[in-house]
Structures are given as structure tokens and as C-alpha cells.
Design a binder for these strands. Structure first.
Lengths: 224, 224
DNA sequence: AAAGATATGTGACTTATGGCACACTTCTCC
DNA sequence: GGAGAAGTGTGCCATAAGTCACATATCTTT
């Protein structure tokens, strides 16, 4: 499969581009470049202008932020097939976190100027993008308000399910970071995980969580 | 001032259009119609297609929703100068609440089809709209997460300030509805309002709140 | 192997908020 | 003008979650 076709597939998997026609996706994918990164190499830092969208072809990118106490917290891992910077490529605002390669990585790069020029030539696609952004706004305002009001177990279960979708049943994350994700204290996270461990839903190791029963977890996530 | 210029001013006041050039705003305003409504007349109902953006020229529109128990809850009041349906006009999704005139009202109407045709003729404006939507997405994801984590007094103060901006120092709203707005129990709302009353920040009447000291309230809203 | 750093487990306490119960007041409608 | 509905004020208790304190347990570095 050509690079271009491969990138089109990745775009298609992202909700932001999923509703575009495959013809349009192919043309967008045709604008892309690729970029190699060594392990540890920095892709961008907080404050850099958001001048591109990236898709991971192979390897891993860590999205992290320098916490106020100087320590670093990983906000997200992007693996093969994952896309990030969709909003930045459109509005060019500065990055809100740092990104660095966790291992040797190859990226698809769609530069902002190329994409904007394309949109200007193709107003119909621009209008589709507008509709997709609107959907996202609606989705956000529905979910967000609801989501933060959910009790901790629900928020935690949702986050774990999301992580499982990316990394399978063995999630490599500290309870501290999990706490940051769901907006809760580490201790509260730990206590809830203990309860689930006693139910056999998961197992705990240092820096790792093993999801044994994703079904029960999704049931909690649905808040039944 | 011509209707068109008047509508341009209203658009300009809305963050969604504020960054467009006045030339572009004039042309958008040129697409508008006006519509008269009698008191109590229904503008749209939940589920109707979102086929227009509205601006209140004079009068009042109530945005309400039928609650599960059959009673009606007012979600918002739109007064002269207020704009609503900005997202609907772009994506055409169905309305998520009902809207009816609280009194005799005159509206500016910008129809979806007119606006989309305009965007297709003017891709540069479409791209600006895209950037504005992106800003909104960023703003939402920053604010929302933060906002729901704020303690009740902060959320309440923010909502009261927002209402004061629309209706001046006498806000006509029940404590029950205020509770729905900020996602809190009526009793909690009442207790906080009592505290502020004792500080002379506001006065309470049946179905009404009198803001005596908006400065102190905005100080609380800023969470200092 | 020793020492420090990092991650996890757990108990005790505090605080914010929700929810129930009930009294009281004001409006509305017959 | 009486009855009921709707809005409000307040006490009491339950619960969820944060915070602090400290014990372990596991990695890393020298």
C-alpha cells in the first residue's frame, strides 16, 4: 500500500475526518510528508505554533506536560494509527503540551499551510470540516457537563476502557497519572482499583494494570 | 441605522463572529431577514432541524425544555442583542431545546442555506469560521473541565454574573432553576445565597435576586 | 549490596454537597 | 376568601472524595 493510501486510512479512522468521502481523503493524504524520529527526540514543545497534524505510522509519541513541581506527567501515548494535532492544523494556535518520541518513530505530517490552501481551493470540503467541528462542539458540550458530574468509578472505568482500546488488556500507566486523567486524587484512584481487584475485574502491578474483565468495566462506564 | 448595520453590530458582539472583518460582517448581515413574533408564539421545538441563526432585535425569547416529570424548565432567556443558534446554522443539527417568545419580539433571522451558499462563494471566510470554531473547541475543553471542578460558590457567582450581564442587577429566576443551571441542589443554592445576603452582596425575593454588589460577586467568580 | 527514588496500599480525619423532612410564605385559581 | 400549589429557609444526616500521615514494596544507581 502506498504511503498516501496508508495515511488516508488513518485519517478515515479519526472521527474528525471519517465523514469525508474517500476521494477527498485521498487528496488530503496526497498533501502529506513523512518524518523519522529517533527515540527521545522532541517533536514539539508547549508554546510552539501548531503548524501541522501528525499521524503515527510506527513507533510511539508521548504527549507530556511539565508539572508545576518540575516533574513530568504523561498525558497520553499515541501509537500506530493514532492522529494528533487535528485542531492545531486548522487554527494554528500554540501547542498546549510537549510531544516527544518514546521510541524510534515514523510520522505522517500534514502541514497547516498545505491544508489551508487545499481548503481554500475546495470550499465544499471546508464546509464539511465546519460541520464536523460543530458536531465536535455539540459532543463536547453534551459529554463534558455530564462526564464531570459522574462519580469517580464511572470516570475511571471510562478512562480505562479508552486506554484498553489503544493498548489492549495490559495498560502501562501509574495510578498517579490515572488520577490526573480523571481529575481525582491518587489515593481515591487506588481505593477504587483495589475494590475492582477484589472483584477480579483487574490485577495491579507496579506501573501496570491488567484488565481481566473488560465487560464488567464497560458496564460500570455506562453507569448502570 | 439600517436593519443590516444593526444586525452587523449584534454579530460583532458575539465571540463567534467578533474576529471577522467589518466588511465581511456587513455582507453576512446583508443575508438576514426579520421576523415578528407575538407573546407566547413558538419559534422552534426540540427536534426541529436547525435551519437558522437568530438575533433578538427587541423583546425576549425563552429557551426551555420539557423536564422528565412534565414540568418546564427555562434554560435561558435571550434579550435584545443576544444571538442564538450559531452552531445550528452551521451544521443543521436538530434543536436540543424549545424556544418561544416571552413577549412581543422582533428577530433577525439568518437562514442556513443563505449562509452556507455565502461560505461556498467565500472560502476565506469559511476558513476564518473554521478557526473560530477551533478556538471555541479549545476554550470549551479548557473551561469545561476546570469549571465543573470549581466549588459551588464559584459556579454560582459565574452564573449570576452572566445573568446580570443580560438583565441588569435584578435577575428574575427561581432558586430551583438556578440549581439546574449550575448543576447543584436547590438547598445548596439557597444556603450559598443566604451567606451572600448576610454580606449584603445581594437581596432575595420570591423568584427574584437583586445584585447589590456585582464587584464582590465577580471577585468570587474569579476564585480569588 | 546499600541508598535513595518512585510507586503503591491504607487508615484517620475533614469538607463539600446531596437528599430528606418540614415549616413558612406567597401566589393563583375557583 | 379558602385551598392548594409553588417557592423558600433550615436543620440533620449520609456519602463521596480530598488530604495527611505513614507503611511497604519495588526499581535504579552507584
Amino acid at each position: 500500500m502506498s504511503k498516501q493510501a496508508e495515511f488516508a486510512v488513518i485519517l478515515k479512522m479519526n472521527p474528525m475526518f471519517a465523514d469525508l468521502g474517500s476521494d477527498e481523503l485521498q487528496r488530503i493524504a496526497g498533501l502529506c510528508h513523512t518524518q523519522q524520529m529517533a527515540a527521545g527526540e522532541v517533536l514539539f514543545q508547549k508554546g510552539d505554533p501548531g503548524d501541522a497534524l501528525f499521524g503515527v505510522r510506527r513507533g510511539q509519541i508521548r504527549i507530556e506536560t511539565g508539572a508545576s513541581d518540575g516533574s513530568r506527567l504523561t498525558l497520553n501515548f499515541m501509537g500506530p494509527g493514532d492522529l494528533f494535532g487535528e485542531v492545531a492544523v486548522l487554527d494554528g494556535q500554540s501547542r498546549s503540551a510537549d510531544a516527544a518520541a518514546g521510541e524510534a518513530t515514523e510520522l505522517f505530517v500534514l502541514r497547516r499551510e498545505d491544508f489551508l490552501a487545499f481548503l481554500e481551493r475546495e470550499p465544499k470540503v471546508a464546509i464539511k470540516i465546519i460541520m464536523l467541528l460543530c458536531q465536535r462542539i455539540r459532543w463536547q458540550s453534551e459529554r463534558m457537563e455530564e462526564s464531570m458530574l459522574q462519580p469517580l468509578p464511572v470516570r475511571l472505568a471510562r478512562r480505562l476502557c479508552a486506554l484498553a482500546a489503544d493498548f489492549g488488556s495490559e495498560v502501562h500507566i501509574s495510578q498517579e497519572q490515572l488520577g490526573v486523567f480523571v481529575g481525582a486524587a491518587r489515593e481515591s484512584v487506588n481505593r477504587q482499583l483495589q475494590l475492582w481487584r477484589k472483584d477480579g475485574i483487574l490485577d495491579l502491578q507496579r506501573g501496570r494494570i491488567l484488565l481481566n474483565n473488560l465487560n464488567k468495566l464497560t458496564a460500570v462506564a455506562r453507569n448502570e
